[in-house]
């Protein structure tokens, strides 16, 4: 916990320093349960002391970037993890936001704990306190204490992260003495598992998963890259792209709209899956498209601010595309 206090102090002092240059800072503050932190939008100097940064800061605050850039006059400071900064980079690369408007306050990351995993382990008991150490997570609930091994509770994306200590783009970088130490996993392992099934099995897998969807649109609205939420074609009557009947087939088509609109743009923050009230593994759908884009065009979103999204450009001769001959 000492470490945490240390990084909090650094964060608060850095933000206080640059507060004159920005009119609003988006950061994390204490949440309503010990398991969660809450995003906060700070526009008064006195509130800066509420800012925190710890292993529970799982939200991707870049979600607010596009909306705020349209609303806020003056510059915006944003507390970001290195992986979150990819979203800002990609938004800038697409010209959706202006780089100069944002002060990226990037904090070195030592891995983020997924509260859903903890909840799954301990059940939804009343949590009195939570202490996340390097090796162990000590949870105190009304039923007693429990010790969990930290290394199993990181967010999925942390297991293949390679930029935790190296922000690709930042204005202020706050180094974290803690480093991310996890056993690396294959990013596409779960996708490969699914692909080993037959085509019918894959079909029924998604039919079952997406049959649960309640169409709350949390996945769409939390996504930092999906900037046209209010004008989404899902809600159109003419043409009627999508029925509002919440059947598995329609829900799947809704996800397909998301996948296609995020092709080559998804920065893999995993927020869509985190926020799903029905625990649908939507992230797999996004990751697969990214894999396809990577294989075909050698592109990953959110790395280079000057690079164009592959589907917005072309080559007259495509090395990796083998066209099918039907004659």
């Amino acid at each position: 916990m000492n470490q945490n206090r240390n990084i909090n102090e650094k964060l608060i002092s850095k933000v206080s320093e640059i507060f004159g240059q920005v009119s609003l800072v988006v950061g994390y503050c204490r949440g309503n349960s010990p398991l969660k932190v809450s995003p906060c939008l700070i526009d008064e100097k006195k509130d800066i002391s509420n800012l925190i940064f710890n292993k529970l800061c799982i939200n991707n605050l870049a979600t607010y970037a596009y909306k705020l850039s349209k609303k806020v006059e003056g510059n915006i400071g944003m507390v970001l993890k290195p992986c979150d900064s990819k979203a800002i980079i990609q938004l800038c690369a697409e010209g959706l936001i202006e780089r100069e408007k944002f002060r990226m306050i990037t904090v070195g990351c030592s891995g983020i704990i997924d509260y859903k995993k903890i909840l799954k382990e301990i059940g939804r008991q009343r949590i009195i306190s939570l202490d996340i150490g390097k090796d162990n997570i000590e949870v105190e609930t009304i039923d007693g204490k429990k010790s969990l091994s930290t290394k199993n509770f990181y967010a999925e994306k942390c297991y293949w992260c390679d930029i935790s200590d190296n922000p690709l783009e930042s204005d202020v970088f706050i180094e974290n003495d803690d480093k991310l130490e996890v056993e690396k996993k294959d990013k596409y392992a779960d996708i490969k598992d699914l692909e080993n099934l037959s085509i019918e099995e894959i079909y029924s897998y998604w039919q079952e998963e997406l049959g649960r969807c309640i169409r709350c649109y949390a996945c769409r609205n939390v996504c930092p890259m999906e900037v046209c939420q209010d004008q989404c074609i899902v809600h159109l009557d003419y043409p009627n792209w999508e029925s509002q009947m919440a059947t598995a087939e329609e829900n799947k088509f809704f996800q397909m709209i998301r996948v296609m609109h995020l092709a080559g743009r998804c920065v893999e923050c995993g927020e869509c899956e985190r926020v799903c009230p029905q625990n649908i593994s939507i992230f797999k759908l996004m990751k697969k498209m990214n894999q396809v884009i990577d294989e075909l065009f050698g592109f990953s979103a959110g790395i280079d601010i000057s690079q164009k999204t592959p589907l917005l450009t072309y080559k007259t001769i495509e090395e990796n595309i083998e066209e099918e001959k039907l004659t």
Partner: peptide, 11 residues
Amino acid sequence: EALKEYLPFIG
């Protein structure tokens, strides 16, 4: 081409 590669994944 991207779509074609993606199709098997949704069955």
